[in-house]
Amino acid sequence: MTIDQAQLEQLKQTLQADDYRLDVDVQGDSADVAIVAGPDACEECLVPKPLMQSMLAPVLGVQPDSIRLTYPTDKA
């Protein structure tokens, strides 16, 4: 499980363009990922979770279904 830092940075920049921040915590073969909205975040601009997981998986080196993904409006 190796994080591709260059691709991770690219993904962060992509999200940042819509004023989102990406917080990643990889533990073994799973990952916790939180996407945090900034003040100017476009509410409809986030891709659906399955697509986001498919984008994150090769970057984080884990399977898509091993990524626990939290979006801004998910209940705590």
Partner: peptide, 10 residues
């Protein structure tokens, strides 16, 4: 609005 995100792959 986030709750209404729909998977565009469908």
């Amino acid at each position: 609005m986030f709750d209404s995100i729909i998977d565009p792959t469908v």
